[in-house]
Design a protein around this nucleic acid. Structure first.
Lengths: 157, 157
DNA sequence: AGAATCTCGGACAACAGTTATCCGAATTTG
DNA sequence: CAAATTCGGATAACTGTTGTCCGAGATTCT
């Protein structure tokens, strides 16, 4: 089981985008993080399609967050890039084979599926509790101030 | 993000194995669940390697659980088949690019990684709370008794 | 005791989904 | 009108999952 690597990039981009007042191009975001420019563009498209960022076209275009940082949760980004489909999918094994349970007797979902769904819910709930603003606060607290100022300046140039 | 489909099979097998008093062959388990025999064998091997089941060779061999059903958690099966590696892996993006944070200043893990790890922990904790015995109790409550008896008889034959 | 029979176990291919890349079309700014 | 920029799809490489096979090992019957 593996989450798409683009989730990490997307979260970093949201943090950076929140700090910059002006639109930032995909190329700049890719260079800042030292990741593939073409592939990051794809992830940004997913964020855009989910309505988390807005892209402005033209010469001085780029990406901007559509809401305040404390209105965007980590779960929003995860679901935008990795999808909303839960990791476990019940294939209704009990309805197959020589001892199959007829479909009309399966009113309640399989206990295995219920267990997995419950775990999936608490996982998502945990991610929903953390916002981009929380991440920013943590970053501001743990990274050297000169680097923060340097990045801000580098983005402007 | 997608969990291995073998997890579902493995859990069903554990439930069946707990009900049968004698060893059950991989072929019988595959036929009962109507899944690929060769591939199910692979999943059973993983369970065996993790110490959840014990295989006995020879003419009347098969698989047996090594512990009582209430001593095996769903998480045990998930980790045996799907692996223990968390879905999110931090690639230390902050240490890359023109504004990289030097490694010696990164004493605390990235806040993004901490958020993901926390969610992963509650997910695993949720799965750890449910045992095979719980699943069996649920199955016994929700499936028609004649089918349960039929399956028990079918296994014996 | 020996041989047949049946089992598990690991090695070996096919498939799918993810990762990564590129280029043309559409759009805004200067 | 020209330059710069984003968006979307089409396309290749790659990793991991899915699926299949045959050999090694053990038990049972004669």
């Amino acid at each position: 089981m593996k989450m798409s690597g683009g989730v990490e990039w997307g979260l970093h981009c949201c943090v950076v985008l929140s700090g910059a007042g002006a639109p930032v191009t995909a190329a700049k975001l890719a260079e800042l993080h030292d990741v593939s420019q073409s592939y990051l563009a794809k992830q940004l498209q997913l964020l855009s399609r989910a309505g988390l960022v807005r892209s402005t076209l033209g010469q001085s275009g780029g990406y901007v967050l559509t809401r305040a940082a404390n209105e965007i949760t980590v779960l929003d980004v995860v679901e935008a890039i990795d999808g909303v489909q839960p990791a476990f999918r019940c294939t209704e094994v009990r309805q197959r084979g020589p001892m199959a349970v007829p479909a009309e007797r399966c009113d309640t979902p399989c206990p295995i599926a219920r267990t997995m769904d419950s775990a999936d819910r608490v996982w998502r709930e945990s991610l929903r509790r953390v916002t981009i603003a929380d991440l920013i606060a943590d970053v501001n607290r743990t990274t050297p101030p000169e680097i923060l100022a340097g990045a801000r300046e580098w983005l402007r140039a």
